[in-house]
Design a protein around this nucleic acid. Structure first.
Length: 286
DNA sequence: CCGGTCACCTGAGTGC
DNA sequence: TGCACTCAGGTGACCG
C-alpha cells in the first residue's frame, strides 16, 4: 500500500514518537510476519533503545542499540502494514489484525505500545546485526532514492534497461521508493507512455521525468501522502489523493488536455492510468 | 534480459 | 440478504 511519501510520513512520525524509547517488552501473535528466528528476534529487540527511525526506499529502518551493540529492525509494510500507538494489552484483546506489539518506556500508558497491524499479512519484520544488515541490503540492491538521485545517474540507469518504462520505474533496483500511484502520476506529468522502452528515453525526457517525480513526491510528502483505501500513518491518513491527476480516475476527462478520457490498462501486471492524448507511445505529428 | 502469471492474504465494492 | 466476482498502494518465484 504505502509508497515513498507514505513511508516517509510514517518514518518521520515514528522517529518523533518513539526514538529514544526503550522496548521493554515485545510480543508477536503471528509468527510468520517475523522473518528469521522468532526467539532471536524477541531477544535482540527486548531491552534495546530505539535510536532513530528512517526510510530506505519503501523500507522502515529502526536503528536499535542494546548494551552498546547496534542492531536494526527492518520493516516492509507491503500493501497494508501500519503502526499505531495504544495501551499495552494481552493478545487476546488485540485488534484482529494486530500482529506484533512493542511496549515502550517513558510514555503515558494509553500510548506506551507500538502495534504492528497488517490486514493482508504481506508485510514483514526482521532484526539484523551490522554484518547481516549490510549483506541483506546488498542482496536487495536498492537503487538510489528518487529524491536524491542526480539527473545524469537517473538517465544512465534508464538507458541500460530495455524493459517498459513503467516496469523499470517500479523495479526498486532502478530507483527505490516508487510504486504504482506515483509512477502513473509521474509518467502522466512528464507526458511519457508507460510502454516506452526505458532505454529509448532522451536525456531531456529523463530530466523531465525526474523533475516531475520529485515535484509530485515532495508535494505528497507535504500533505502526508495519499490515502485511497486504507493507508494510515501514526496520525491518520494523507491528502494527496485529492491532487492525483490520473491514478484512480479512469473515465474522467484528462485534467490537462480536457480530452482523454483517462484510460485504465494493465502494464506489467499493474493497473495503469494514462491519458492517451498526452502520453502517446509514438510521437504525434504536429 | 524480458514479459507474463501466480502466490501470498483480507476486505471493500459491484452486479445479479 | 446472499453470492460470485473483481480489485487493491508490493514483492518474489517460476516459466517460456
Amino acid at each position: 500500500m504505502p509508497e515513498l511519501p507514505e513511508v516517509q510520513t510514517i518514518a518521520s512520525d515514528l522517529h518523533e514518537a518513539v526514538s529514544g524509547r526503550v522496548i521493554e517488552m515485545a510480543l508477536v501473535s503471528l509468527g510468520k510476519i517475523v522473518v528469521g528466528d522468532l526467539t532471536r528476534f524477541a531477544s535482540l529487540v527486548t531491552g534495546s533503545r530505539i535510536v532513530a527511525v528512517k526510510r530506505l526506499g519503501k523500507w522502515l529502518e529502526f536503528s536499535l542499540e542494546t548494551n552498546g551493540e547496534p542492531a536494526t529492525m527492518l520493516v516492509h509494510l507491503k500493501m497494508t502494514g501500519q503502526f499505531h500507538l495504544n495501551s499495552w494489552s494481552s493478545p487476546v484483546h488485540w485488534h484482529p489484525h494486530d500482529h506484533a506489539a512493542f511496549r515502550l518506556s517513558g510514555l503515558p500508558s494509553e500510548q506506551n505500545t507500538l502495534y504492528y497491524r497488517d490486514i493482508r499479512q504481506f508485510g514483514s519484520l526482521r532484526v539484523l546485526n551490522a554484518p547481516e544488515l549490510s549483506e541483506f541490503l546488498t542482496g536487495l540492491g536498492l537503487g538510489p532514492d528518487p529524491l536524491l538521485v542526480n539527473p545524469s545517474d537517473f538517465f544512465k540507469r534508464l538507458r541500460r534497461r530495455k524493459g517498459r518504462l513503467k516496469c523499470v520505474l517500479l523495479d526498486q533496483t532502478t530507483v527505490s521508493g516508487l510504486g504504482n500511484i506515483y509512477v502513473d502520476e509521474g509518467l502522466f506529468a512528464a507526458k511519457l507512455s508507460p510502454l516506452r522502452s526505458a532505454a529509448t528515453l532522451t536525456r531531456t525526457e529523463t530530466d523531465r521525468l525526474l523533475t516531475e517525480l520529485k515535484r509530485i513526491l515532495m508535494a505528497s510528502i507535504v500533505v502526508r501522502g495519499s490515502t485511497t483505501s486504507n493507508y494510515q500513518g501514526l496520525k491518520g491518513g494523507g491528502h494527496y489523493q485529492k491532487q492525483l491527476q490520473v491514478y484512480g480516475r479512469t473515465g474522467a476527462p484528462c485534467p490537462v488536455c480536457a480530452g482523454g478520457p483517462i484510460e485504465r490498462s494493465v502494464v506489467s501486471g499493474r493497473s495503469t492510468h494514462t491519458c492517451p492524448r498526452c502520453q502517446p507511445l509514438s510521437k504525434v505529428k504536429s
